[in-house]
């Protein structure tokens, strides 16, 4: 397979006054060229921090990437100099954020900001860059792009702003687009439009997408491959069809149960009992142990490791192949 990004044993920790938060703890994942990878998990499980680690955007202090490798197009991003990383940001790897309302600088026009992105990474003069930003806005379906280019962010709706953000992210033809919950802040119809747009762009440009979400509906619609995270660790990963057909980890099963389904008439929406574990006081064994309905004795003491269970499907759970010998 043609691999674009390989993350190996990434560890990103935050050193706070209360203690160390292992926001990303030994995470490995892989994105192939042209593939869409979805990362799912509850709030606080380390999805955004994983994404930000790729571009080395972790605020330091308090955060620090403590170990691992992030191999992008054959180079370890963690070993590059700051200048080399800046060259990649917004150029080969670009990122869109959750809040379209606040991701654009309020005092500059949309055009100004897209032009800045273009001129930073491409040798174009202002006029060519302006032309290119109009094209980019048209590409993401913004009508009257020639005029919108002079609009300020507060004059556009959330959906339009997110389109503008996508235009800005796509304008340098990135090979990887990281989208951190790009539709969470939008209402449902706009959400569907934005996802459609991303799919369309992906087909046209062959850009790989790393899509972060906590919405399994979005996963089903967008993903080719899925990684499920819990408390800073990958607990399950599989092909999207395999995962929905054959979910294994009790946490994934819980997530699937808690997804609303129209055709099934249920009294109450299921939700996984208990809460996300306290990052300063993680259980010794499986992090999901306190909330797991199928927990066993061994789960309390021994941390399960990620193991292949066939079909490229990997799970970290003692129910599937014991770690007893460890």
């Amino acid at each position: 397979m043609d691999e674009l990004l390989i993350i190996k044993n990434l560890k990103t920790y935050f050193y706070t006054d209360e203690g160390v938060v292992k926001a990303v703890d030994d995470v490995s994942l892989r994105i192939n060229r042209g593939q869409t990878l979805c990362i799912v998990g509850e709030s606080g499980c380390g999805k955004s921090i994983t994404a930000m680690s790729i571009l080395r955007l972790i605020p330091d202090p308090p955060g620090k990437i403590e170990g691992g490798e992030i191999i992008f197009e054959g180079k370890d991003l963690l070993k590059l100099s700051d200048d080399e990383v800046r060259e990649i940001r917004g150029n080969k790897i670009s990122m869109i954020f959750q809040e379209p309302m606040t991701s654009l600088n309020p005092v500059f026009t949309i055009g100004n900001q897209i032009i800045e992105a273009i001129m930073l990474h491409q040798k174009l003069d202002k006029k060519e860059a302006t032309k290119k930003s109009v094209e980019a806005l048209k590409l993401v379906g913004i009508p009257r792009a020639e005029e919108i280019i002079n609009a300020y962010p507060h004059e556009l709706s959330g959906g339009m702003r997110q389109r503008a953000m996508i235009a800005m992210a796509m304008v340098c033809n990135p090979t990887l687009l990281i989208a951190d919950e790009p539709t969470t802040a939008l209402d449902v119809t706009i959400q569907a439009q934005i996802l459609d747009l991303m799919r369309k762009l992906k087909e046209e440009t062959k850009t790989s997408i790393m899509l972060i979400t906590h919405d399994l509906g979005v996963v089903a619609e967008m993903a080719e491959y899925v990684t499920v995270m819990y408390a800073g660790k990958v607990v399950e990963e599989a092909d999207v069809i395999e995962l929905f057909k054959n979910p294994k980890h009790p946490y994934t099963l819980g997530l699937l149960e808690s997804k609303p389904q129209i055709h099934i008439d249920k009294e109450k929406l299921y939700s996984i009992p208990g809460q996300v574990p306290n990052p300063f006081n993680l259980p010794k064994g499986c992090y999901f142990f306190p909330r797991c309905e199928r927990a066993m004795e061994i789960c309390k003491e021994v941390m399960p490791t990620l193991k292949e269970v066939g079909n490229g499907h990997k799970v970290a759970c003692h129910l599937y192949g014991g770690d007893n010998n460890e």
Binding site: L55, L57, V85, R86, E87, I88, R89, G90, N91, S94, M95, F97, S103, L104, N105, E116, A117, L120, H121, M165, M168
Partner: peptide, 8 residues
């Protein structure tokens, strides 16, 4: 953060 992600 977005500006930083652009490589500024």
């Amino acid at each position: 953060q977005a500006a930083e992600a652009l490589g500024l």
